[in-house]
Simulated assay, not measured.
Amino acid sequence: MQVKIINLEKIFYQNKVVSIVAPGLNGYFQILENHAPFISILKDGVLKLKPIYDRKDLEIKIEGGILQVKKNMVSIIL
C-alpha cells in the first residue's frame, strides 16, 4: 500500500509499505493492505512503518496528527 506523510512544510515521506503501526487516541493500531476505509486522530507517540523494499523498519516520533486509509492509500497529516 502507498503511504504519504505530510507536515506543514512538505511531503515528509512517500513510499510503499507492508504495514503501519500508529498511536491512536485509544492506543496503538495497525494498518495492513486492503484495510477498510478509516480515519483516526493520532496522539503523541511513534509511527512505525515497514517499507516493502527495505528490511529495516522506519520509526518516526510524532506529536499528533490525522490518518486516513482509502483504497490502499494511507495519508497522514502531522
Results as ranks from 00 to 15, higher is better:
Gln14Gly: 10
Pro51Met: 08
Leu58Lys: 14
Leu42Glu: 11
Lys71Ser: 13
Tyr53Lys: 13
Val21Ala: 05
Glu9Arg: 06
Leu32Ser: 02
Gln30Ile: 01
Ile76Val: 02
Glu63Phe: 13
Lys71Ala: 15
Ile20Asp: 00
Val17Thr: 04
Val46Gly: 01
Gly27Cys: 06
Met73Asp: 05
Asn15His: 11
Arg55Asp: 13
Ser75Phe: 08
Leu58Pro: 00
Leu42Arg: 12
Lys4Phe: 06
Leu32Asp: 00
Ser40Ala: 15
Tyr13Trp: 09
Arg55Leu: 10
Ile5His: 08
Lys4Gly: 01
Gly45His: 07
Val3Glu: 00
Val18Tyr: 15
Ile66Ser: 14
Lys48His: 08
Ile62Tyr: 10
Val21Cys: 06
Tyr13Leu: 12
Asp44Trp: 13
Asn26Tyr: 08
Lys48Cys: 05
Lys10Ser: 05
Lys48Asn: 11
Ala22Ser: 12
Glu33His: 13
Ile60Trp: 03
Gly65Trp: 09
Lys71Val: 09
Tyr28Gly: 14
Val21Glu: 13
Gly64Ile: 07
Tyr53Gln: 11
Ile20Met: 01
Asp57Thr: 06
Lys71Arg: 11
Asn15Lys: 14
Met73Asn: 10
Gly24Asn: 11
Val46Thr: 10
Val17Gln: 05
Ile60Gly: 04
Val3Phe: 01
Leu78Ala: 07
Val18Pro: 05
Pro51Ile: 02
Ile60Arg: 09
Glu33Pro: 06
Lys48Glu: 09
Ser75Leu: 02
Gly64Arg: 07
Ile20His: 01
Tyr13Ser: 05
Leu49Gly: 03
Ile6Gln: 11
Ile41Ser: 15
Gln14Arg: 15
Leu47His: 07
Asp54Gly: 01
Lys16Phe: 15
Tyr13Glu: 03
Glu63Ser: 13
Leu8Glu: 05
Ser19Val: 03
Asn72Ala: 10
Lys48Leu: 08
Lys70Leu: 11
Tyr13Ala: 07
Pro37Asp: 08
Pro23Ser: 02
Ile31Glu: 06
Tyr13Lys: 11
Gly65Ser: 08
Pro23Ile: 04
Val46Pro: 02
Val46Ile: 07
Asn15Tyr: 10
Gln2Lys: 15
Val74Tyr: 12
Ile62Pro: 10
Asp57Asn: 14
Pro23Phe: 00
Ile31Arg: 09
Tyr53Pro: 00
Pro23Glu: 02
Val46Lys: 14
Lys56Met: 08
Asn34Val: 02
Phe29Cys: 10
Val21His: 06
Glu59Leu: 08
Leu25Lys: 14
Glu9Ala: 02
Arg55His: 06
Asp57Gln: 09
Leu25Pro: 05
Ile11Leu: 04
Gly65His: 07
Leu49His: 04
Ile77Trp: 13
Phe38Ile: 07
Leu42Thr: 10
Ile31Thr: 01
Lys16Gly: 10
Phe12Met: 05
Val46Glu: 12
Ile41Gly: 15
Phe38Asp: 06
Asn26Val: 11
Gln14Ala: 15
Glu9Ile: 00
Val69Gln: 02
Val3Leu: 02
Leu58Asp: 02
Val17His: 03
Asn26Gln: 12
Ser40Gly: 15
Leu25Asn: 10
Phe38Pro: 09
Lys48Phe: 00
Glu63Thr: 07
Asn15Val: 00
Asp57Leu: 06
Glu59Tyr: 12
Ile62Glu: 10
Tyr53Val: 01
Tyr28Phe: 12
Ala22Ile: 00
Glu33Cys: 04
Asp57Arg: 04
Val69Pro: 03
Gln30Cys: 04
Asp54His: 07
Ile77Cys: 09
Met1Ser: 12
Ile6Ala: 10
